[in-house]
């Protein structure tokens, strides 16, 4: 990411509560530059997944403003649903198609794209995410990393302006983590803007352009990986002792 990129997403004072007593997100404000890789981390129960769902429009926030690509989409749930791509943590529950190809086509059919456009996007995504040889395979017979890439593919074909991933490395072995992380970095190089939610910062911190730390529903720390590194362990995030920012990646191993 080149410095001083325009903002793609700006969130101001987002509040979400389940009831009068149970506040999940409190005054959450942050911005995401175009083409950046933002790491959103925090301990379990901090509200990370809920924040993603509020951004996407799957949960109704009580207060706050969301500006996407210069337009206020706080009240335009349909716009957010169409322009923000969300990949959930459990890849198995996102699979709908009987084959890899049909699963990827599913989202494009929902958008009403014509067959020619569908075929074009399908081929591009299959090549980009290295799934071309598995196109006729049943999704549930794929490996963990392949399933995660399929889940990403299914969302990517819908051409979202912002790609948000919720714990994409959960339950993956080392090889699968490397495969998914390499894919995400490739997507960023292609110009996609990515928000990645993970509490396993040792896998990804060195690749992030900015880090947001969420704890008990509030952003308690934000900045570049170097700025944020000394404070991470104070907020319940594990770090190998004495690790520098450059060490915190699984791609180097």
């Amino acid at each position: 990411m080149t410095p001083n990129q325009p903002e793609l997403l700006s969130v101001t004072a987002l509040n979400f509560s389940l009831s009068k007593e149970k506040h999940i997100l409190k005054d959450v404000s942050f911005s995401v530059p175009q083409g950046s890789f933002t790491l959103l981390c925090g301990p379990n129960g901090s509200g990370k997944s809920v924040l993603l769902r509020c951004l996407k429009g799957l949960e109704q926030m009580q207060e706050g403003t969301i500006v996407l690509d210069g337009k206020d989409v706080s009240k335009d749930r349909k716009k957010r649903m169409q322009t923000i791509g969300l990949v959930f943590q459990d890849a198995d529950t996102q699979m709908v198609g009987q084959t890899v190809e049909k699963d990827i086509r599913f989202g494009m059919e929902n958008l009403g794209l014509d067959l020619e456009e569908q075929n074009l996007r399908l081929e591009q995504v299959l090549q980009l995410l290295d799934l071309a040889s598995q196109r006729s395979q049943r999704p549930r017979t794929l490996s963990g990393g392949e399933k995660r890439r399929l889940a990403i593919a299914g969302v990517l074909v819908m051409d979202p302006k912002l790609l948000v991933l919720d714990e994409p490395f959960a339950n993956l072995d080392y090889r699968s983590v490397v495969s998914v992380l390499s894919t995400l970095l490739k997507l960023q190089k292609e110009g996609h803007t990515i928000i990645l939610v993970s509490h396993e910062v040792d896998k990804t911190l060195s690749h992030a352009d900015q880090v947001l730390v969420l704890e008990a529903g509030r952003i308690v720390s934000s900045g570049s990986p170097r700025e944020v590194l000394p404070t991470l362990s104070l907020h319940g995030i594990y770090l190998p002792e004495g690790a520098a920012v450059e060490d915190l990646t699984w791609l180097k191993r």
Binding site: K56, L58, Q82, F88, D90, T93, Q94, V96, E109, N110
Partner: peptide
């Protein structure tokens, strides 16, 4: 639980049951 997750995933991909599929 799984059905709820699936339902959210479908909604996230703009699923519309009444849309005619080829």
């Amino acid at each position: 639980d799984k059905a709820q997750e699936l339902s959210l995933a479908l909604e996230a991909r703009n699923f519309d049951p009444s849309r005619k599929r080829p």
